[in-house]
Design a protein around this nucleic acid. Structure first.
Lengths: 188, 188
DNA sequence: TCAGCCATGTAATGGGTTACATGATTGA
DNA sequence: TCAATCATGTAACCCATTACATGGCTGA
């Protein structure tokens, strides 16, 4: 099939890009996604399967069914030359305007005046801990991949994760400081 | 109406929270959202209208139609006491696990090996400029609100935006440096 | 022996976006 | 005078998530 159905979403291109690393099942794509682009693009399982089907019906990937014993049969997907072309075209497009980084946490903090001070402090401390944990994870990955030349570009994206995690941690500290100051002023 | 239809999304709560600043039309909510929470939570126009209707039918906001001359009639929404309660309950809930900050730009960079070096450099430079512009905007807002005590919590969220924008800019510099080094190694 | 993970997906639902509409006012 | 912005929403669509299903393997 090669329908002119080329309204691909970013997640489509993410999946298509992962297929450049070789022939894979949906499950493989999902695992690879989690381990590689997971810290800035984390599609749901069913979404990955749906996109693979779409890529196939658009002629950007080819599918091949494989029977297995002892575990469910699977379908392996491989990027086609048209797929590589579509991917490259997308990569070359100028990057879209800045995406506001959605944050439920920040949203709650915005309405902080509506809840008790100490609850807010706990929430910020909790958030800080999670960011520190994330930072540790990313640092562990960094030591693993930093000397692997074939992972140069993934390494750059890891650096982005590190930068944001560090920024989040020091922002949390700043907020905790400001909250303490405010508390002192109001309860002198 | 006060149906037990209380499966509210984060955007619902965002709108509900904005209604704590007073009675507003959908249009007002949208403008306020853009100016206040826009840099970390930016719902679409039609989404805001839809959520307002939902809040009303859930009994969390009350609606009042106002006829106007010379411009379209409007509906003004006001948070109810049940709405305030629901909002507070949501705010008190422990914050969800960390949301991966989605980034199309980072995704493209991940596949950087597939496009010419100089295109990538241009894209990073472009991204850096946008982040610097964003940073300037946020700094302008900061000087406006930093001494307004009633905007203390919004100010904290602004600090988050500043931290992330700064982190993004210095990350871009880091990436540009690494790209230059790589270029020299490969074309000595 | 039993919980949890490996491995493979499908179904149902809802969140959120882009495009469509309309008419008055205002600044270049 | 004409484009942009204000001001108000509606309709159609799809992206994406959570929940559902199945069965074998593996370590405590």
């Amino acid at each position: 099939m090669s329908g002119p159905n080329e309204n691909l979403s970013t997640t489509s291109f993410a999946v298509l890009g992962l297929l450049t690393f070789g022939e894979m099942s949906g499950y493989d794509v999902l695992k690879l996604a989690e381990a590689s682009i997971g810290h800035f693009w984390a599609p749901a399982k069913s979404h990955v399967y749906a996109e693979l089907k779409r890529l196939e019906s658009a002629g950007l990937a080819s599918a091949r069914k494989v029977d297995q014993e002892g575990r469910p049969n699977k379908t392996l997907y491989k990027i086609t030359s048209r797929g590589e072309e579509a991917l490259r075209t997308w990569l070359l497009e100028p990057v879209a305007p800045i995406e506001p980084p959605k944050s439920v946490f920040t949203l709650k903090l915005f309405f902080g005046r509506l809840i008790p001070h100490h609850v807010l402090v706990e929430q910020v401390e909790d958030m800080k801990k999670r960011c520190e944990a994330m930072l540790q994870e990313l640092l562990a990955t960094e030591t693993k991949i930093k000397n692997d030349d074939s992972l140069f570009y993934p390494y750059l994206t890891l650096k982005a994760g590190l930068a944001h995690a560090r920024a989040a941690v020091s922002w949390a500290d700043e907020v905790l400081g400001l909250l303490r100051t405010k508390q002192k002023q109001e309860v002198p």
